[in-house]
Amino acid sequence: MTKKLGIADYPLAETQPEKVIGARGLALPDVTLAAVIKGDVTMEDLRITPQALRAQADIAQAANRGTLAQNFERAAELVNVPQDFIMATYELLRPGRAKSKDALLEAARILRETYHATDMATYVEEAAEVYERRGLFTFRF
C-alpha cells in the first residue's frame, strides 16, 4: 500500500482483502475459522497493522477529515508500542501525575527514539508545554 488511497478503495476488506496483511504475514482471506481451529491464528494475527492505519489515514484525508487522519497516523505509530508503555504514558498525561515537564519530555523522547513515534512524541511535548503554562504539574492526591 504505497500509493495514496482514496474513497474508492474503501472498504479495504472488500476492495483488496489480499493486501490486508496481519502482523505475522497472514492475509485477511487466510484468517478463517478452519485456520483458527487448527491453531494457525493467534491474537497477534488479529491485530491491526501500521500499514492498515496509514491506509485508513489516506482515506480519511481524502474525505476531508484531516484530524481523523492525523489520529490514525498517531495510532499507526503506537501499534508496536508495548501496552505497558502506552498505559504508563497515558497515566503521565493525566493531571498532576507528572511532577514536572521532564517526565513527559522523557516519555516523548522514548516514543521518538525507541518507537519512532515522531507525531506522538510531538503531541506529548505539546502537552508538556501546555501543562506547565496551566499549572497542571501540581500534586492532586
Binding site: A75, E77, E126
Partner: peptide, 16 residues
C-alpha cells in the same frame, strides 16, 4: 486533559 484523552484515542485506534 484533552491531551490525555487524545492519546487514548490514538491508543484505541492502534489496537484496531
Amino acid at each position: 486533559t484533552p491531551w490525555s484523552k487524545g492519546f487514548l484515542a490514538a491508543a484505541y485506534a492502534s489496537r484496531g
